[in-house]
Simulated assay, not measured.
Amino acid sequence: MHLYDVVLFLHILTLLAAIGLGSTLHHAEWATRTATTVGELRTTTAVYRRGNLFPIVIILLFAEGAWLLHLSKEQDETFHWDDGWVWTAIAALVILMISGGAVLGPNATRYLKLLAATPDGPITSEVRAATFRPFIRATSHMNTALAVAVAFNMITKPSGTAPPIVVLVVGMLLGTLVGLAGARARSAAMA
């Protein structure tokens, strides 16, 4: 066993943690569809607080990836910072950090404060609107699909610049469309 293999395992383990966290948050998003009271929404979305773990996960993914690049010199194949699948992964991590820190995190904080300030009872129109904001749902699902696209690039290691970029763009577009469709469906279900 080589150190490279251990770091690769840690990198994959961190990715699995990110997938688990993202899945939990998406489950809560989709579960809001069946809520009929503010109290149910509070219970369902309390997990949104865990979104604050994403910056740690993103930093770990970057650090482990950088370590793997360094250790790749010991392997049969050396990877480089300027490989398309490497620098696009870094760009994706920056996008994830910015969209999470500037959009999703602050929105989750405002949303949870709104729920805390709203009396128990039927879901108000203000809470309904805050629950199903299409831009937030689109950004959330875009981030997940972007992370999946990065994983695809990491596994397939496409050569050149265009293929890894196309994979990321397609992933982001598909995630955005899923998020928008889900926001519309959830909003309609609650109306």
Rank of each mutant, 00 (worst) to 15 (best):
H26M: 06
A31W: 08
M154K: 00
A63M: 05
A66Q: 03
T131Y: 13
I59P: 04
P106E: 03
V38D: 03
E29Y: 09
R42D: 02
I155R: 06
A46P: 01
S23N: 11
G175Q: 08
W87Q: 10
I98F: 12
M1Y: 01
S159C: 02
S72R: 04
A91N: 08
R33L: 12
E64P: 02
F79D: 05
T161K: 01
G20Q: 05
L96P: 00
A35F: 04
H70N: 13
D76Y: 14
A181I: 11
L3F: 12
H141M: 14
I12S: 07
S187A: 08
A18E: 04
F54D: 08
N107W: 15
E126S: 13
G22V: 12
L114E: 00
T32Q: 14
S72K: 05
L68Q: 07
M154H: 05
H2V: 10
L71R: 03
L69P: 02
R33Y: 05
T131I: 04
T161E: 02
M190E: 09
F9M: 05
L96S: 02
T176Q: 13
L174Q: 00
A188F: 05
W87G: 03
P55M: 04
I58W: 09
H26P: 00
G101K: 13
T78M: 11
L10D: 03
R110Y: 10
E126G: 06
E74D: 12
G51Y: 15
M1T: 03
T156H: 07
P158R: 11
L41I: 02
L53V: 09
A129Q: 09
L61Q: 12
L68N: 04
T156R: 06
Y111C: 14
E74N: 08
R110N: 10
L8D: 11
A181L: 14
L21Q: 07
L21F: 07
F135T: 08
G175F: 14
L15A: 09
K113F: 07
L10T: 00
V169I: 09
G105Q: 08
V57K: 00
F62G: 02
A188Y: 02
M172W: 13
E126K: 04
G51F: 15
P122N: 02
P134R: 10
L71A: 00
L69Y: 01
E29H: 11
M172G: 15
T78R: 04
D76I: 14
P122R: 05
G51W: 14
T144L: 14
Y48K: 06
S159P: 01
E29Q: 09
H70Y: 15
T44L: 14
G20A: 06
L13F: 10
W30F: 13
T43K: 12
S72G: 09
T124F: 02
D5R: 05
F62T: 10
A17M: 09
G179F: 05
L174G: 07
D83I: 04
I165E: 02
P106S: 05
R50A: 11
G175M: 10
D120K: 07
P164Q: 05
S140N: 06
V7F: 08
A147R: 03
A102D: 01
P163Y: 07
A162E: 03
D83V: 10
R128F: 12
V150Y: 09
